[in-house]
């Protein structure tokens, strides 16, 4: 154990992720927490492409690649097959990026959670389809420029808000839903271990920086992820049986400008837009706080 994290690596080096990839770091730490007694089902996306250039693989656990939209439904099938074989100690983990989770595979995930399947779904959220060239997804933050809607004179960046998938899945009566970030690796470890121990559908969304798509220095990747937490842009909370708990309470938030200025995808923003984003972030935080303090079930 180093820093309270296991030393075993179930994700091998030599993968083709860009230098400073937050997603690869998130995967590495999720696997450290799950251990080897799992079956991974992965949707198409960056983390699938970089980890399985045929005939090589970075995975040291059983791994299946399925179509973009079917990670969660396939995982439920694998979980049921394992149950029939009496191997209920083996957990099925589905991985997907935000494209697979928020857009393309959303119906399948919703069905899986509605059927109360015994799987854990991990979403690597970096806010766009980074693998195919930074196209807009419904996880792209407000104001960001993406290749399918580049900011210019007419379009001031994305005009819509990020889809609140964690809250939507919690509303499916999921026993455990959490958001995490690669800026706190011990927190990822704790949340994944917690989800692993729960029977039923669990969801963990990990905010992970993509230096290539966010247009930031690869060395600053973790620093930018930390800024997302400190500015309340990426709030970290967990929802257990509908009860919201903010795990990282930011009492003195930094202005959102610090986070936005660190990335090229926000460089076009005007002071008015930054003010608007600050307003949205404050509103979202107030909503979470209210949910937490009310103590009622979501």
């Amino acid at each position: 154990m180093i820093r309270g994290l296991p030393e075993e690596e179930y994700f091998a080096p030599g993968h083709r992720a860009c230098a400073g990839c937050g997603g690869a770091l998130a995967l590495r730490h999720v696997l450290k927490a799950t251990g080897k007694n799992i079956v991974v089902v992965q949707a198409t996306g960056c983390m699938e492409v970089v980890s399985s250039p045929y005939p090589e693989t970075s995975w040291r656990v059983p791994w299946l690649h399925v179509a973009f939209e079917t990670a969660a439904p396939t995982a439920s099938g694998v979980a049921r097959a394992l149950k029939t074989q009496g191997k209920e100690d083996v957990k099925v983990v589905a991985f997907g990026g935000d494209g697979a989770t928020f857009d393309i595979g959303f119906g399948g995930i919703s069905g899986t959670f509605e059927r109360n399947e015994n799987i854990m779904y991990v979403c690597n959220e970096n806010g766009a389809y980074m693998n195919t060239g930074m196209q807009r997804s419904s996880a792209t933050p407000f104001g960001a420029s993406a290749s399918t809607m580049p900011a210019g004179k007419k379009i001031p960046g994305k005009k819509e808000l990020k889809k609140p998938v964690a809250l939507i899945l919690a509303a499916h009566n999921a026993p455990y839903v959490a958001t995490a970030s690669v800026c706190d690796l011990n927190d990822i470890n704790r949340k994944v271990k917690k989800a692993m121990a729960i029977k039923g559908p669990t969801y963990i969304e990990i905010n992970s920086p993509c230096p290539t798509g966010w247009y930031c220095d690869s060395a600053k990747a973790i620093e930018v992820a930390r800024l997302a937490m400190q500015t309340r842009i990426a709030p970290m909370y967990e929802i257990e049986n509908g009860k919201v708990t903010i795990t990282h309470d930011i009492t003195e938030p930094k202005p959102v400008e610090e986070y936005l200025k660190a990335q090229g995808r926000f460089k076009h923003l005007s002071p008015e837009q930054i003010k608007e984003i600050q307003g949205q972030v404050d509103k979202e935080w107030a909503k979470l706080k209210k949910l937490q303090d009310a103590g009622c079930e979501l």
Binding site: I2, R3, L5, E7, E9, F11, A12, P13, G14, H15, A17, C18, A19, G20, C21, G22, A24, L25, R28, H29, L185, P211, D217, S218, A219, A221, I222
Partner: peptide, 28 residues
């Protein structure tokens, strides 16, 4: 802990060293 390429290793002396075979030089 923060290396996305598993390229920092602990040797027998307890010192951390870089595995230059895989380090992509991201600078994290």
């Amino acid at each position: 802990a923060n290396c996305p390429d598993m390229s920092v290793k602990k040797n027998e002396k307890g010192e951390f060293e870089i595995d230059y075979d895989y380090c992509k030089g991201c600078g994290i």
